[in-house]
């Protein structure tokens, strides 16, 4: 769900910096980006770090998982969940989050913004 052409790749961190099946917050320019790794299937996702519900910088500290086939993250504040693919809120709320591309080269992780 990202536009490979319009984005430029920024080095974020090393693969081992990200906890297994969890997330970290990456500072890209002055933006806060949440980066997630599903170790079980070696899938990477990146989204804005701010939860739009109460505008808290917290998504990177949330629990990740799946709803059916959709990978998702739950905000630690009020457990709003968002699709990591489309950014849509999975609790039926109007709000949604930005998603970004991720690529891994060797042990380096890049985010496309």
């Amino acid at each position: 769900m990202y536009q490979e052409n319009s984005s430029s790749w920024t080095f974020a961190c090393y693969t081992h910096d990200v906890p297994e099946n969890g997330g970290v917050c990456v500072k890209v320019n002055e933006q806060q980006i949440a980066l997630f790794h599903f170790t079980r299937i070696d899938a990477w996702y990146a989204t804005q770090n701010q939860c739009p519900h109460r505008r808290q910088m917290a998504l990177s500290r949330g629990m990740i998982g799946t709803q059916g086939e959709i990978p998702k993250v739950a905000c630690p504040f009020h457990k709003k969940t968002f699709s990591l693919e489309t950014g849509e809120c999975l609790n039926g709320d109007e709000c949604s989050i930005e998603t970004y591309g991720v690529k891994v080269e060797g042990d380096k992780v890049f985010i496309g913004i």
Partner: peptide
């Protein structure tokens, strides 16, 4: 471990209900 529980007894990749 959580992963072993999912592999042996569950399906998918967990969620904010089953993980805790």
């Amino acid at each position: 471990s959580m992963d072993a529980a999912l592999d042996k007894l569950g399906s998918g990749h967990g969620c904010e209900t089953c993980k805790p």
